[in-house]
Nucleic acid binder design. Sequence first.
RNA 1: UGGGGCGUGGCCAAGUGGUAAGGCACCGGGUUUUGGUCCCGGGAUCGUAGGUUCGAAUCCUGCCGCCCCAG
Length: 398
Amino acid sequence: MKKVYVGMSGGVDSSLTAALLVEQGYDVTGVYMKNWAQDLPGWACPWREDLADAKRVAVQLGIPFKIYDFQKEYKQKVVDYMIEGYKTGITPNPDIMCNQEIKFKLFLDAALEDGADMIATGHYARRMPLDDSPASSAEPTAPRVSQRSASSAPPVLGHRADKHATLRASTHPRISSEPEAPVGQFGLFMAEDKNKDQTYFLYRVSSKALKQVLFPLGELTKPEVRAEAKKRGLATAEKKESMGICFVGKVDIKDFLQQYVDTKPGAIVNQKGEEIGEHDGAIFYTIGQRHGLDVGGGLPYYVVDKDIDKNIIYVSTDLDDERLWLKEIKLTQPHWINKAPKSDTKLQVRTRHRAPLVNSTVTDANTIKLDDPIRAVTPGQSAVLYDGDRVVGGGVVV
RNA sequence: UGGGGCGUGGCCAAGUGGUAAGGCACCGGGUUUUGGUCCCGGGAUCGUAGGUUCGAAUCCUGCCGCCCCAG
């Protein structure tokens, strides 16, 4: 009987995950990962309730229950990564980091060491064995060498890319790119419920880890999960969705950062070059952002760029501002789940959770040319590439 | 202190006699396992003091403030 350790957060999804595995005959152990337990000014960390809920469900299911304390590692690998990223002017994605470093590395390793054969989580994603004929190779297009599109790249983009590349290089990037895994075994696929699919956050999971991971909810829709949980009388069946940074919760990111970073007021400059207001720290703002600028009158302003060194944020009322619509994305720290795509491979990409897929061409390991421009592609966020339902991999936007 | 114009919620801005549109910002809520986007909801008696009128933000007068022309 396979021994499976299930990450139980105290929510419906992971609760039902555990229940399903028990029913499927696995030897299930529930594990609550204690990653964050600190209150913040004006915000109480719900870890006690979450732990209690997870434990309650474990008791209902009659499975062993454990607590793994990863607070130290979570702080280092996820929170510090996030804080450092913001300091350099990018907009990091802590949840992707959390999956890479904590759930599918630390937790996996700890579980295996503890005697588990596999781990499982309540993610909406699917894992399936790949055929011998690797589905990874999409038909190669015109057999030309990857051509740089220097001409088509807007000057602004080039400038910005360089700027951020420099910034990143000066820090210690915490996202480590996995060595290319051998083709084979398992691929990561979008969930059946395209509305809840969470593969965007999982593209940095290694194929090695995928061999030992189960996603029992991959074939279910959210309403079904709710119904099934209710049918089984799980204590968390009606629990409200939790949102925000995983394990930390719905904290105001600005309030959170202010606990760790000192900032100074700076200028808000519009598309005409006029200073139209003052912000309280450029690191708090991200590309495409509209609210929080406190500048009113006429049309809404959107952040189109920022200069972290000068502490200036650039805004525009022009919805078609060229700085807001990129046709090409430059990546750093690429990570491919099974195999890197060949040059000029046609794939689909998304640059944020739940965003529609956009047809694109991977011209080389770190360049994606988009068929249609994407709004507010943001440095620090990830671009994830799909081949149909299969997650090919992706990288961090530079 | 010669002439002209303006002053509506934090900002922009409709409304010129019938009892305050709309947008932005902000706040609250919703969507969302990051940030962001998006969606819904919320606020003013109209610079001020009088007058005319059944009734005024809308007409008249004084005052205050601002802008332009006045070279």
